[in-house]
Design a protein around this nucleic acid. Structure first.
Lengths: 293, 293
DNA sequence: ATCTACCCTTAGATTTTCTAGGGCAAAATT
DNA sequence: AATTTTGCCCTAGAAAATCTAAGGGTAGAT
């Protein structure tokens, strides 16, 4: 006789969030990244949820998970729900006495492009705190707590996005190294430096600027563009420079661009602002200073 | 220089839920009851949230907490957000192979009124599981996971509510005790039994049915109406019966109503169903069997 | 065939979250 | 005026959740 079982408890909220992320991003690993946990954590959350609801949400395949039909049907309601939560949380955060502007940027962009502009911003925004977070992938501004994101990526065209500059690349090196170079062919005798995530920059530039020139890539790879740039300054070799990132070094004379050929990558330095009313006065102010409209 | 702090993390979701409940119900204690935790837990959640947002949400007074103006302004967005979550969760639960109908009822109603009707419902709903939970206060059907609630309370008039019967009260006792009674005045010589939460039933009935009759209440109090009723059957005294709850005992002859005066309390036996599409076929079926429209 | 690169799971450890018990202060009651 | 009641706060220890790290399996590449 089923009388008085303990009050039926709702599902764990964090599991719902994990599920929402997993179904939206299409995988546990991606969801894990967004939530800053290991995939195992996501796996357990989903399992807990499946146990609670007594319904399978994902089909486990060897190459990843595939949402079940039913799981997919939950995507929209949960997305709506968490957008709603996000909005309420923004409202909550807007109450802080001292507002904080959260900026997300690619590590290299943060250090090489944003950093020189920060002092100006900070003085203009007295009374606000400023927080800069380096991220490998652009955050979902609707869901996460960033106000502004600055990335070097293919523009998505979503609302709130402003293109600051098209991305153009060209080899850069120290003046000392540049002295040895007269034509692109001389590159073959030099060490080529690579950024780990932009490893095909060299191929891309060569294809446009010096077709036919081939070289086995044997130079060092750096996980941080900034490190590669430092090494370049120390005459360790030649690096493909992204205009927005090497501008300061070129202006100071630490680096030079030995060849004139500038090649567009199709990417762009884009700044995106979250579309929310509160605090946006300060956010718009920052945007204007960064060169947005 | 604030570069690369750890990714700003959102507020703990559970704290948001605690806050939403606290602001909606107007107190930590009430929120604690709804979430089935101790008030201390709520207190900690709210504090965590206030620390996170760096803004006070409640003003602590000795007789309870009062929401700050800002806290109050968050009530609506958070209510909306959690309604949204609730809806998504219902959708999720609707996927279970074997549906469960969750019924919430006052303990006395569950045992005395609902219990005799359960076998009929269960056979009609083969393939569904049935869960009956005894609750002192009616749950928020929009937020909690109950499908049907049955309470003896003043009708609220909210959508989904059906009045099954007006609440009327009158003294009941065992036939053995009834043999000693001829007029209401004889009540003065008998032991009066009380239900702890309906302690003023006697006063209420006397005021209408036998004005002037006074007696110092010295009879035993029972925390469960069912126990009081059992004692009444064992001739331990006279109890104020609620029509819906003593019906079975009157029909079986275990109890009798020695006086004809029936007094309305203004309350009613009401059944409320959650307004949701899925699973509501079964829910409506149950409702019909209980006597709703 | 073997290797590499993914991605998901499981067991154990860690951190969060909860409960219990003791206080305090104002309001209601005696 | 004293007492009881109510409702929140605090802290330490206990319970439960959540996470990480290591394991294992599959597809496509070498």
């Amino acid at each position: 006789m089923p009388v008085s079982p303990p009050r039926p408890k709702g599902p764990p909220l964090n599991a719902l969030r994990a599920f929402e992320a997993a179904i939206r991003l299409g995988g546990f690993a991606q969801a894990a990244e967004e939530l800053c946990v290991t995939p195992g954590a996501i796996s357990q959350h989903i399992k807990a949820l499946e146990d609670w609801a007594e319904v399978p949400l994902f089909e486990r395949r060897s190459q990843g998970v595939v949402p079940t039909e039913f799981g997919l049907s939950l995507a929209e309601p949960f997305a709506t729900a968490f957008d709603s939560i996000g909005q309420a949380v923004r409202h909550l955060r807007s109450g802080a006495q001292q507002q904080t502007i959260h900026i997300a940027a690619l590590p290299s962009v943060a250090q090489l492009w944003l950093s020189p502009r920060l002092p100006m911003i900070r003085t203009a925004l007295a009374g606000h705190r400023l927080s800069v977070t380096a991220l490998e992938t652009p955050p979902n501004l609707q869901r996460e707590l960033f106000d502004i994101s600055i990335f070097l990526d293919t523009p998505t065209g979503q609302p709130g996005e402003t293109i600051l500059a098209e991305d153009v690349i060209f080899p850069v090196c120290s003046p000392e190294v540049a002295a040895r170079l007269t034509s692109p062919k001389d590159l073959l005798n030099e060490t080529w430096l690579y950024d780990a995530v932009w490893a095909d920059d060299w191929d891309h530039w060569l294809a446009q600027a010096a077709p036919g020139l081939k070289k086995k890539p044997n130079g060092p790879h750096f996980s941080l563009y900034t490190i590669a740039l430092e090494e370049t300054k120390h005459s360790a070799g030649i690096l493909i420079g992204h205009a927005a990132l090497v501008d300061t070094a070129l202006k100071s004379g630490d680096l030079v661009a030995p060849f004139g050929e500038r090649v567009a990558t199709g990417k762009a330095l884009t700044v995106t602002v979250s579309l929310h009313q509160k605090a946006s006065k300060a956010v718009r102010q920052v945007l204007a200073m960064l060169g947005g409209n």
